[in-house]
Design a protein around this nucleic acid. Sequence first.
RNA 1: GGCGGGGUAGCCAAGUGGUAAGGCACGGCUCUGCAAAAGCUGUAUUCGUCGGUUCGAUUCCGACCCUCGCCUCCA
Length: 466
Amino acid sequence: MPIRFFNTFSRQLEDFVPLEPGIVRLYTCGPTVYNFAHIGNFRAYVFEDLLQRHLEYRGYRVLRVMNLTDVDDKTIRGCRAAGIPLAEFTKPFKDAFFEDLDALRIKRAQHFPEATAADHIARMISMIETLVEKGHAYRAEDGSVYFRIRSFPAYGQLAHIVLDELQAGVRIRSDEYEKENVGDFALWKAWDPADGDVWWESPWGRGRPGWHIECSAMSTGLLGPQLDIHCGGEDNIFPHHEAEIAQSECVTELQFSRYWLHCKHLQVEGAKMAKSAGNFFTLRDLTKEKGWSGREVRYALLSVKYREPLNFTMEGLGAARSALGRIDEWTRKIREIADSANSADADPPHMRSNLAAFGQALDDDLNISAALASVFDVIRETNRRIEEISPNEAKGLMTWLDGVQSVLGLTSEESEIPQQVRDLVAQREQARLEKDWKTSDVLRDKIQTLGWTIKDSKNGQKLTRA
RNA sequence: GGCGGGGUAGCCAAGUGGUAAGGCACGGCUCUGCAAAAGCUGUAUUCGUCGGUUCGAUUCCGACCCUCGCCUCCA
């Protein structure tokens, strides 16, 4: 069964066939580093991570690029307000972004190009020059350069927007009165006093690149003129991705991206996430202040299909914690059985269809809900007959789980147990052998105060973080 | 106003023209020195509302209600 994706461009499910067999060129729009990214941003990045991991699970080599927008209105405003150079202002947010990626176990792309890098600026300028030469762009009096959307008849095809309807009701901003058409967008923005010392030289005078050209230049520069998949949040469809198509295709005269995948926004507690509503969360708010782990947040963001709106709730985080506990517990049990396996041949035959269901669900436009359901089906079924599971079968299950976890990225971190706790557990073991329950309970409390919870099982004491 | 999503048990959510996956929560049971944990198990005559097509619709069609996104730099 082929992998199928819903292509925003055609608005249909399509079989996925990359341009070059075995290789996927993937471009994903990254953050604007003027602030800490919020969980809505991370829904998109987690979805893209799932996409990359599943493609890799299916044997593709994924070449991925994610840009960092480190110059735009907001970053300039921020550095001016702070009275520091632009790069100094954006640096901490870049660092924080990578920390957050790690916390959410998002695999690194091959490249994280920064818009302000000299070679990328050069490429943007060169693309704009080509667009001007070809008549797709024009210089306004103030030195800004605009893309002439009338010169690209396909403009609007991705978003399914009819240009004539677009005109109605749009207010023309005073600083852009020189545009031929209200829909024309900036490729190059002329320097303005409010920009301070943020500017680059160009054939049109001092200024800075527009947002859209940044992605066109960095994607085609690093991945070549044609991408297999281009992703982003649904809000990027128009105008951002529409503009990228126009700019790129007018330069390369090739189809820019073969597949467009967009994820829906999330809501928080059933409402639109907004600072004013008090339901606005960065990842740090959840991990550092509320004590959720990155893995738990990842599960909450991952467990709903990317094309459905996701309702992010505190209760949902609790559900994520419990569900992960169930997976962890099962993993621990099966691994214990598998440890005594003596054969490398371990393919549980009667489980095969269940085991395959995981990948098949993801092949179907990344149906993660169905994929997770298949995982829990396997867990329930094997728990039911846990006493009969042979070491070899357990080993087979662990192999399957390795594959599943390479996609989900939800493996439990086997935490280091401090020596002090180890000693107390040993003492308690002795007390229990002597049926000294009083001492046993005292030790259990003591261990609890050190941040670890004891659970007595048939096979002895089990430790988990409190 | 235009375009596009979504409304399925207490919560989060799959899904299909033929009679509702999975997770969480809750109840029952097993296990257990106690406790907790863990495991098994039960729980939607019903899929926003009203019509229509059909032998049969949650699934197709129409209308309506609610909600979210985009409509020029917001994932």
